[in-house]
Design a protein around this nucleic acid. Structure first.
Length: 295
DNA sequence: AACACCGCCTGAGCGC
DNA sequence: TGCGCTCAGGCGGTGT
């Protein structure tokens, strides 16, 4: 699932080849993946890429014309260099592609093709006319989770009666955390996912913010988490899934204390935590926990 | 106004 | 072997 570390890995892997290069041709294969005008120029045809910018889970491609192409990867989206696969057939789920001419082509180099593919189509493309429109678009997002401070997290929590897990998933509070890294950060900070956000002490907010930053940074270093679909722009899967302490490990032993990890639906998301390391002494919302799944 | 909840969409994995 | 069911979840829209 592309969350912040996966999108950042895509950004870093595409940036060297894309920045400074020219989009010679933009082809849209499925019109309904685009929000906004979807003409060739809106998809940056004929324009030079000046920057790849990320905020939370969103990736913006800025062109010299001022136009911006914003990419959401959703659940299963990929933005990557085309790598012809022998087995790829009609169900390749490629919805858009861009022919790219490098800034300084090496002798004999003919250019490359960038593709957007997304089997489940929870992702998509947004076209924006100016960087200012991008700023407006991104003004709805909270601070980037990679730089979230204890003060900002605490302030968002003070305004909220929700479970802290729900707050972490709220892109308006902080941008970039999804289900995987929310559970991992709460475990790293030893905070129960059902704790009422407004009940966190200043020290706990600082600890959780530090854990969010640390978990995300470690995941970026590992190239993100690949559960099934995720690959970087170079087609390389991530390695951080090997280091998940709680996500996807319900019923298995805690890596820290050996207790059996618990699982419940919190904020409409499967949530896994250690009932011993993540004590819920104060401010815990009424439980609607189901019995631990045996999965 | 804040928050809960639905539904979009496909493929993997499972039980029978 | 193969079919059909369930589940996964980011996020915009709608309901409370």
């Amino acid at each position: 699932m592309p969350e912040l570390p996966e999108v950042e890995s895509v950004r870093r892997s595409l940036s060297p080849g894309l920045t400074g290069s020219t989009i010679t041709r933009a082809t849209l294969l499925r019109a309904d993946i685009v929000t906004g005008d979807a003409g060739p120029a809106d998809l940056l045809q004929g324009q030079r890429v000046v920057e790849l910018r990320r905020r939370g889970k969103q990736l913006a491609i800025l062109a010299d014309s001022g136009r911006v192409l914003l990419v959401h990867l959703g659940m299963t989206g990929q933005l990557r260099w085309h790598n012809p696969q022998p087995s790829a057939g009609r169900h390749d789920h490629v919805h858009a592609r861009w022919s790219v001419r490098p800034a300084r082509p090496k002798p004999g180099e003919s250019g490359a093709t960038l593709i957007f593919r997304d089997p489940r189509r929870f992702g998509g493309l947004w076209t924006l006319p100016t960087p200012a429109a991008l700023d407006v678009h991104w003004s709805r997002l909270g601070p980037d989770a990679l730089e979230i401070t204890g003060e900002a997290l605490g302030a968002a929590g003070q305004r909220s009666r929700r479970a802290i897990k729900a707050l972490l998933l709220d892109q308006a509070a902080l941008a970039g955390v999804g289900n995987i890294y929310a559970d991992e950060a709460l475990f790293a900070a030893s905070i129960h996912p059902r704790r009422r956000a407004s009940s966190l002490s200043d020290e706990e907010a600082q600890r959780l913010a530090a854990s969010v930053r640390a978990v995300l940074a470690a995941a970026i270093d590992a190239g993100g988490s690949t559960l099934r679909d995720y690959v970087s722009g170079d087609g390389v899967p991530g390695g951080f899934q090997e280091r998940h302490a709680v996500y996807g490990r319900a019923g298995r032993p805690c890596t820290r204390c050996g207790s059996r990890l618990a699982s419940a639906l919190i904020a409409q998301r499967t949530t896994v935590w250690c009932p011993r390391c993540q004590q819920s002494s104060r401010g815990v919302r009424p439980s609607t926990a189901r019995l631990p799944s045996s999965r």
